[in-house]
């Protein structure tokens, strides 16, 4: 589904990604772990098409479509979803309004008409229930004054509404208490199918107990330096990254 070859990217002239190679197939869950500043968030931004980041070298394909030619809007239409580490607060737009605009924009790109109001409402209600979201939450301004946990839950709520092919969850576990973490992980697991894929970016192994990865990759200084299965995550949790650095 996703193929990344020798990806180099920089921001403000500073090189961050220094040759990423990654292949993700339908039905798989990949975890990317790494210390602060290793380039994990940059990777997620580059994948989602943030224009602040320059691609210097390499290529990215989603189902044979060259992503480098597409802006963030088209990538979203193609089925890429990024759950932000720091979702932006937008006072003046309610969650419901945002969700509706988002859904209908994606439908329009596919040549479909706006979703019927009743259908939309039902879908919103179903997905909100799945993630334990209170209906009062839906009429609040987008992310404004939300707790860290509410913001993250709102991200997964959007993901549930959009049903993307490839979801990139950037530090979705940070700011979540254990109950919220379970709800969010449960939501992600329910959305998972053999037709889509998930990349989980995280510092900690904690989330990976609930969203169980097929592959774990370690990112250091802009490169994926080691890959393995979920046992790798346990080892990192107990021993840190130094042993990997020594191997290099």
């Amino acid at each position: 589904m996703l193929i990344i070859n020798n990806l180099h990217a920089s921001v403000d002239g500073k090189q961050i990604l220094k040759g990423i190679n990654l292949e993700v197939n339908s039905g798989e869950i990949h975890a990317i772990m790494g210390p602060n500043g290793s380039g994990k968030s940059t990777f997620s931004y580059v994948l989602a098409g943030n224009e602040d980041y320059e691609i210097d070298k390499g290529e990215m394909f989603l189902e044979d479509v060259d992503l480098s030619e597409l802006d963030s809007v088209s990538r979203a239409h193609l089925g890429i979803f990024l759950s932000f580490q720091y979702p932006v607060e937008i006072p003046g737009i309610t969650v419901t309004n945002f969700i509706k605009t988002m859904i209908n924009s994606n439908r329009k790109a596919k040549g479909l008409k706006d979703m019927q109001a009743g259908k939309m409402l039902k879908k919103i209600r179903d997905k909100a229930n799945l993630l334990g979201i209170d209906s009062r939450f839906l009429s609040r301004s987008l992310n404004e004054g939300f707790s860290g946990g509410e913001k993250k839950r709102n991200e997964i709520f959007q993901m549930a509404m959009l049903e993307p092919k490839l979801a990139v969850l950037d530090e979705t576990d940070s700011g979540l208490d254990i109950d919220a973490l379970k709800i969010v992980a449960n939501g992600v697991n329910k959305l998972k199918s053999d037709k889509n894929a998930v990349i989980v970016i995280t510092h900690y192994q904690r989330l990976l107990e609930y969203i169980i990865p097929d592959f774990v990759h370690v990112m250091l200084d802009g490169q994926i330096v080691k890959s393995g299965d979920k046992k790798l995550a346990y080892k990192i949790e107990s021993e840190g990254y130094d042993w990997i650095k020594k191997e290099l």
Binding site: F84, F98, S105, Q158
Partner: peptide, 17 residues
């Protein structure tokens, strides 16, 4: 706000919208 703009665009809402 550039960040907010990217947030909306990353959800498939066109730049103009």
């Amino acid at each position: 706000d550039k960040e907010a703009l990217f947030y909306l665009k990353s959800r498939g809402i066109t730049e103009k919208d």
